[in-house]
């Protein structure tokens, strides 16, 4: 094992880079209209998350974080995209309908949210050691994820948005507090989301069955 201090700088650079790429993927997700591509983008984003976990594990010799990384790859890069893909094929949607904000406006909003994320994270930048400044990106991921959720109308894209919010939470957990955060909590978050997605998947299917559409804005027809 090489001395971490020599290449810690490299590790930090790698983490920052991958976190930034996660943000870039998130923005692409905001402008992407095709659901299948969206799922692929999510998978790549999760892969970077796993990469960050791997780097953190390597430089801290933390075995449990390796497990997190492996689980992320298994769950979020392989299983969930596969599940969602199957869902898409089953209900045969290809394109998202017109979102609330068009792409340039959405981009502008996301730019603002990014700025907000950076401002909010500013007081904490001195605290952490390794992946410094990833907190800003984590917050931004959460914010833009929420934005994505209400910007889109299809239930499936909303699920995807929820997943990116979760990625943001995980990023914060891994990069900032992983040294202290028990593995159990991470498992908890992880399986919560897994179950949530499966339930949502079934729900999506049901909505589609009952309304012949996945447009959640049609749910207001449920009113008496």
């Amino acid at each position: 094992m090489n001395a971490p201090s020599v290449s810690a700088d490299l590790g930090s650079q790698l983490i920052t880079l991958m976190a930034a790429l996660m943000l870039v993927l998130q923005l692409l997700l905001v402008v992407e209209n095709r659901v299948l591509t969206g799922i692929r983008l999510y998978a790549i984003q999760s892969l970077f998350l796993a990469g960050i976990a791997g780097v953190v594990a390597f430089f801290n010799n933390a075995v449990d974080v390796y497990i997190v990384a492996a689980l992320t790859v298994l769950g979020k890069v392989v299983f969930l995209p596969w599940l969602l893909n199957r869902q898409v094929r089953r209900i045969q949607i290809v394109q998202e309908i017109e979102p609330l904000f068009n792409a340039p406006t959405a981009m502008l909003v996301c730019g603002g949210l990014t700025l907000l994320g950076y401002i909010v994270a500013r007081p904490f930048t001195g605290l952490e050691r390794l992946g410094n400044n990833t907190l800003a990106i984590a917050i931004t991921l959460v914010l833009t994820g929420f934005f994505l959720m209400f910007n889109r109308r299809k239930a499936l894209t909303q699920v995807l948005a929820l997943l990116t919010v979760e990625n943001g939470v995980m990023l914060a957990a891994i990069a900032l507090t992983t040294y202290g955060m028990p593995l159990v909590v991470e498992f908890g978050i992880f399986f919560d989301v897994l179950v949530a997605v499966m339930i949502l998947g079934i729900l999506v299917y049901r909505i589609r069955e009952s309304f012949a559409s996945m447009d959640t804005s049609k749910l207001n027809q449920l009113k008496g």
């Binding site: 930034a20 923005l27 402008v31 792409a103 340039p104 996301c110």
Partner: peptide, 12 residues
């Protein structure tokens, strides 16, 4: 849309 993505990347 594509170019606004480029613009956002530049801003980021």
């Amino acid at each position: 849309d594509l170019l606004s993505a480029a613009f956002s990347l530049g801003t980021l």
